[in-house]
Amino acid sequence: MAAPPRLSKMPTSPQRRKSTIKGYLVGAVLALVLTAIPFGFVATRTLRPKQIFVAISIAAIIQVVVHLRYFLRLDLKPSSQNKSISLCFAAVVLFILFGGTLWIMFNLNYRK
């Protein structure tokens, strides 16, 4: 992999800047909604605890994707190959750490 050029790729034209701001706003609203949903479930207790747990997990995962898409502006276009590689690596590491933690903790739980 050759050293990439040093030019910054931040958007400069007014039009692109506008679309970026719009992206941030969409992201912020989505993030707020995805945060409000779990809090709402916990506060109102409309579901059983296990279902709330599942709902929180799903909202959290979607929230991660929202942050990556709208705040870090990641996409899967070939131009951002570096980003895709780091994202894949991060996914693998998170899988190891989350999966490992769940394995360890449930294993301890069974032995109690």
Binding site: G100, I104, N107, L108, R111
Partner: peptide, 15 residues
């Protein structure tokens, strides 16, 4: 180094 953290608590009750 990312997959061996449990060896710091091998004696703390895992199966």
């Amino acid at each position: 180094s990312l997959v061996v953290w449990l060896h710091h608590f091998l004696t703390m009750g895992s199966g």
